[in-house]
């Protein structure tokens, strides 16, 4: 009886139809940025290696990172890193029961988005 009632429940798995709360969006962004940053680790070590191996390699990297298209991509990476870092701090505070109430958690989620954008804007000012 109860089972058949449950089976009749409509399922809305269309992500475009679900109105997600801000906490869910921030959580997805945290996971997405984390996976992208993970995939960038080999490039980071490669850059570190080239920059330290020879003086020519170092100069080539300087020229590479002076290109404006490269700097735009770099800014996107900085945004993902900044968002992941500040939201990570929010998650650490949640572990200490700070900002755990629904209203505080929603407000802080918006604040972390804003802070991530502000940090990116600061580096845009430095790099562009």
């Amino acid at each position: 009886m109860e089972m058949s009632e449950q089976q009749k429940r409509p399922k809305f798995l269309n992500l475009l139809k679900i109105r997600m709360p801000i906490g869910a969006i921030v959580s997805i962004a945290h996971r997405f940025s984390g996976v992208i940053l993970f995939m960038l680790i080999p490039f980071l070590i490669y850059i570190l290696e080239i920059s330290l191996k020879t003086e020519q390699g170092f100069q080539q990297l300087v020229e590479f990172f002076n290109r404006s298209d490269v700097r735009v991509v770099l800014l996107l990476i900085i945004w993902m890193f900044a968002h992941h870092l500040v939201n990570g701090i929010r998650l650490l505070l949640l572990d200490l029961d700070i900002g755990i109430s629904r209203s505080a958690s929603r407000l802080n989620s918006w604040l972390m988005i804003l802070l991530g954008i502000l940090i990116t804007a600061f580096f845009a000012g430095v790099l562009l």
Partner: peptide
């Protein structure tokens, strides 16, 4: 990265 990707 290990803990995070493992969770994913």
């Amino acid at each position: 990265a290990w803990v995070g990707i493992r969770d994913v």
